[in-house]
Structures are given as C-alpha cells and as structure tokens.
Design a binder for these strands. Structure first.
Lengths: 138, 138
DNA sequence: GTAACTGCAAAATATTTGCATCCTT
DNA sequence: AAGGATGCAAATATTTTGCAGTTAC
C-alpha cells in the first residue's frame, strides 16, 4: 500500500512527505470520493487545513486526483485512473451520488455515452453525474 | 417580458417584488446560466447580497431555476423548463461549459442518454456536463 | 545546502442568521 | 392589518496569501 503511494508521488516528481502519504493513502483506502472536510476528519495525524488545500490542489494539478462536480456543489475528490496526466484529465467515467448517505462513487467500469452537441461546439470532456440511492441505502 | 415573469411568480405563490422581477428577468434575458456574482454584477438596481442568496434559494425550492454542477464547482443557476415543479426537478438536459469564456449553456434539445449503473443502484436523476469550446470562442 | 513543503497567523471571500423595517396582498 | 420579503449588521464558514521555520533530497 505505502509502496504504491510512494510510487505515485515519485512518478509525479513530488517529494515524499507525511502529509502527502497520509492523504494519498486515504484515497487508496476509500472506495468513495472524499471532500476536504472528509480528509480533515479521517486522517489520524492532524493535518493543517491549509496544507490539505495545497496538497489537494497539487494532486489535481498533477493529475493524481480529480474533482467531481456534484449536484449540491460541494467539492469532492477521487483518485484518477492511470490515463490522467498533468494538465490533462481523462476521467470519462460515471459518478454516482447517493442522496441518502451522501456518498459519491466513481463507477469506473461504466463508460460515458456519446452526447450530441450542436455542430459548432467542440467537446473536450464529458462528465456524467447520476443521483439516486446506492446499494447500501435502499 | 415582464408579464411572463409575473406569471411565473404567481404560479408559484410568490409575491411580486422588484427584487424577484429583476432577477427573474435577468434569467429570461440570458441564454446562459448565471452565478450569484453574475446577478450582482448584471442587475441595474443594486440588490442586497443576502437577498440574492435568499431569492435564488426560493427559486430553486419552487422549481423555477435549477443549479448546475460545474467542473470548477462554482454554482450556476438557470431557468427550468415547465416540467419542473416544487421539490422535483426534471432538468434532464445537457449542460455545456465553455473553457474559453466560461459560459454555461443549457442545451435543452439534447436529451440525456441512458446510463447503465450497477443493478443495486437506483437512479433518480442524471446530469450531463460537457466541457469544451462554444461556438463563439472557436 | 537548497529548494520544496509545512504550519501558523491573518487576510480575503463566501454564506448564513437575527432582527427591525418595509412592502405586497 | 398580517405575513412575507428586504436590508443591514454580524456571526460563521471557506479559501487564499505571506512568511518563517522545517524537511526531503
């Protein structure tokens, strides 16, 4: 586990620090997307609020995690698949938000359907956010 | 124009006030989605910041406007189609966010494709957010 | 040793709440 | 007249910035 996390940091030319290891492990351990508040709450050692902001931003910039647009506009983060690289995200999977427990899932296996936009528009990326009830809450 | 706006308010048992008329007209006039900041900036009479918050919330509750989940997690609002009613939104259209000018469009004519989720999940609503470049910016 | 990272303080920004006043019906 | 809507002040919450001290390499 820790090795994987260290590898990720090395691959992205980031120095190995407690903070980054801890936060990245949280993502590894979690099958769900995490908010800034989740991270503050879940991490055993207390990480400074500001450092968490900066770490998350760094990870997003490096393509290690991605943000998820949610219906209630809270910011959620989740690990990217390998295809992501700096400045270029390819998270073309479906996100599912459970209205009961508030959990956000990345449904990695389900690919995004083609969406037809007007001819004059250029599509870079498509996000699909499904709201409903997850398997644990029904 | 004003008549339409007044009708909308009446249909929703909301009293007719300058504030609501003004904000609702902004949405009518705009082909794009608006943020709280947009509304503060665009409205001719200065509306109190707090009142705008409350008005937007009221409109969302009543199903007059809906929020749009954006990739950068700013909150955008746009008029709902008639099918929306209190507590129940049916905005199953595609939202398009232009990375150049930052404009959010509701592509009303383009319906949401079916998304297959795991059998254990119940789908209530699907949002599709397309990022790219709009016709004006290419 | 040096550059990058962190934590604290504080600034800037965004959102919510309470309450007295005003406006719509 | 009565209830809802507004605006102001202020409380909270969220995010950003500056900087000095610490850590990774």
């Amino acid at each position: 586990m820790k090795d994987v996390v260290i590898d990720i940091l090395k691959h992205n030319q980031l120095s190995i620090t407690d903070n980054r290891l801890g936060i990245l492990e949280l993502f590894q351990k979690s099958s769900k997307a995490l908010s800034h508040a989740d991270i503050e709450r879940l991490s055993e050692k207390h990480f400074d609020r500001v450092t968490i902001y900066r770490t998350l931003q760094t990870f997003v910039d490096k393509g290690i995690i991605h943000t998820i647009p949610t219906a209630d506009n809270s910011i959620m983060y989740a690990l990217c698949k390998e295809a992501c690289s700096e400045g270029h995200h390819h998270d073309d999977h479906v996100h599912f938000l459970c209205g009961q427990c508030g959990t956000t899932y990345c449904l990695d296996n389900i690919s995004i359907p083609e969406v037809n936009v007007p001819k004059d528009f250029i599509v870079h990326q498509t996000n699909v956010l499904v709201n409903g009830v997850c398997k644990n809450c029904r």
